[in-house]
């Protein structure tokens, strides 16, 4: 066809086809070029971490070593595991962060169901407050919250009791898992507002008929939620769970403030440099090894769920 083009013997319908093919080729080229360039930005960093964590420190001053280490060493990982206190801190991350994530995933769904399916006075205002909780950063709240946690009290009841009787029953919940469980349990945990938003949009897109049928049969409000909504919301649950798991795993700001003895991995990573000095070497290599060890569990989990997750994004459908 190109030959004909140069000879000038191209018929009109062929020229239309040629133009179409060329356009498609060009669009494909631009698309792949752009996506590959951006993928490179991400994968470069991952390879960089792997390459640096496997090489001895002496390779840093060896100009012939760019990507492939002169010898493979596990020394950096040894340092990182010791300095991070990897197993213990990892377990703290699990029972502190991941349990809290599971609570959050469920509670936010319940709250969002209330917003999605029922009409009541002040609903819009309350939902505005939900969005407000996403907008105000935790950094602004962390100091008063810390002080409140050290004398935990629900709406001043126990304080009243103390003033009447002189007995202080207010528990100190700093350095306990309650600092994470309680907010999650009440739907104001790590980025809960965003999850309530996502759930609500999804629930609103589900048909109401099945729930109505359950009500006609005389079921209470929890029944339709548990037996109709939950089974048909697998996709949105997967999306929210993945986000919640990752954000809880990475949370180091609040955990650094509230937890003293039981520090999760994210906090240990934050203070890695000084800890590594005590166990035989804070170098770029050991820092990269620590970063890799930190993201490894989430990365592995993501690899297993990635196909499902990528497909589920298609079906969650967030409409403004």
């Amino acid at each position: 066809m190109l030959k004909k083009l140069f000879n000038g013997t191209l018929r009109p319908e062929e020229s239309v086809l040629l133009r179409k093919n060329l356009t498609r080729g060009f669009v494909n080229f631009v698309r792949y070029f752009f996506l590959l360039a951006l993928s490179y930005v991400v994968l470069f960093q991952l390879l960089y971490m792997i390459s640096y964590s496997l090489r001895p420190e002496s390779d840093m001053y060896n100009p012939s070593v760019v990507w492939i280490p002169s010898e493979i060493t596990w020394h950096n990982f040894d340092v990182a595991i010791k300095a991070l206190n990897y197993v213990d801190a990892g377990l703290v991350s699990l029972w502190l962060g991941q349990v809290s994530a599971m609570i959050e995933v469920f509670v936010c769904a319940v709250v969002a169901y209330g917003f999605a399916r029922f009409e009541f006075g002040g609903k819009n205002f309350v939902f505005f407050l939900v969005l407000l909780t996403i907008m105000i950063p935790v950094q602004m709240l962390v100091v008063p919250t810390y002080l409140n946690y050290s004398h935990f009290d629900i709406l001043g009841i126990l304080n009243q009791f103390r003033q009447w009787t002189g007995i202080d029953l207010r528990p100190n919940i700093v350095d306990t898992a309650w600092t994470f469980y309680l907010p999650s349990f009440f739907g104001v945990g790590v980025r809960s507002g965003l999850f309530i938003f996502i759930y609500r949009k999804f629930f609103e897109s589900l048909p109401r008929e099945l729930e109505e049928a359950a009500y006609v049969d005389g079921a209470g409000p929890m029944r339709p939620f548990l037996s109709v909504i939950l089974p048909s919301s697998g996709v949105v649950f997967l999306t929210v769970t993945i986000f919640s798991v990752i954000w809880h795993w990475n949370e180091n700001y609040m955990a650094g403030m509230y937890m003293v003895d039981n520090k999760p991995l994210a906090v240990m990573l934050d203070t890695f440099s000084s800890a590594a000095k005590n166990v035989g070497g804070d170098s770029r290599n050991s820092r990269m090894a620590a970063c890799l060890l930190f993201i490894a569990p989430v990365l592995v989990l993501y690899m297993f769920l990635q196909r499902k997750f990528v497909q589920s994004i298609d079906r969650v459908g967030i409409v403004g």
């Binding site: 709250v111 209330g114 029922f118 309350v126 629900i154 309680l182 009440f186 104001v188």
Partner: peptide, 16 residues
């Protein structure tokens, strides 16, 4: 409806 969002409202007051 109010019942479903009640936990959130309590949490909002205490923790926010």
């Amino acid at each position: 409806g109010r019942m479903f969002i009640l936990p959130w409202v309590i949490g909002f007051i205490i923790f926010f």
